[in-house]
Simulated scan of single mutants.
Amino acid sequence: MQNTAFTTAWRKGVIARYLTVAGATVDLTGCGDHTYYRCTGCGHGTHGVSVIERVARERAQGHAETCRALPRPTH
Score class of each variant (00 low, 15 high):
G30M: 12
T46E: 02
V14F: 03
E58I: 12
A24Y: 04
I52W: 02
T4M: 08
G41L: 03
P73R: 11
C31Q: 06
G30L: 14
I52H: 03
E53D: 11
A64M: 01
P73Q: 06
R72K: 14
R68K: 07
T25R: 00
R68H: 09
I15H: 00
A5C: 07
F6S: 12
G13D: 13
S50Y: 13
T40W: 12
A64G: 02
A5S: 13
C39G: 04
V21G: 01
V55W: 00
A60D: 01
N3V: 14
R72V: 07
G45K: 09
E58D: 12
T74D: 08
G23A: 15
T40I: 04
G13H: 06
Y36C: 01
R54Y: 10
V55R: 13
A5T: 04
H47C: 04
F6K: 09
A9S: 15
I52P: 12
T8M: 07
L28P: 09
A24K: 09
G32I: 14
A22G: 06
C42Q: 01
R54F: 11
V55Y: 01
Q2G: 03
R57C: 09
A60I: 08
D27M: 01
R59W: 10
G48Q: 06
G30S: 05
T25W: 00
H75N: 12
R72T: 11
F6W: 13
C39S: 04
G41D: 05
A56I: 15
C42L: 04
G45C: 05
T74I: 12
D27V: 04
L70N: 14
Q61W: 08
L70G: 05
T74Q: 14
R68E: 09
V49D: 07
A24G: 12
T8W: 00
Y37A: 05
I52A: 05
G48L: 07
T20M: 03
G13W: 10
R68G: 10
E65Q: 12
T46F: 03
G23H: 05
R38G: 11
T8D: 04
M1T: 15
H34R: 15
R72Y: 02
I15M: 06
A5N: 05
G43N: 10
W10H: 12
T7V: 05
T4G: 08
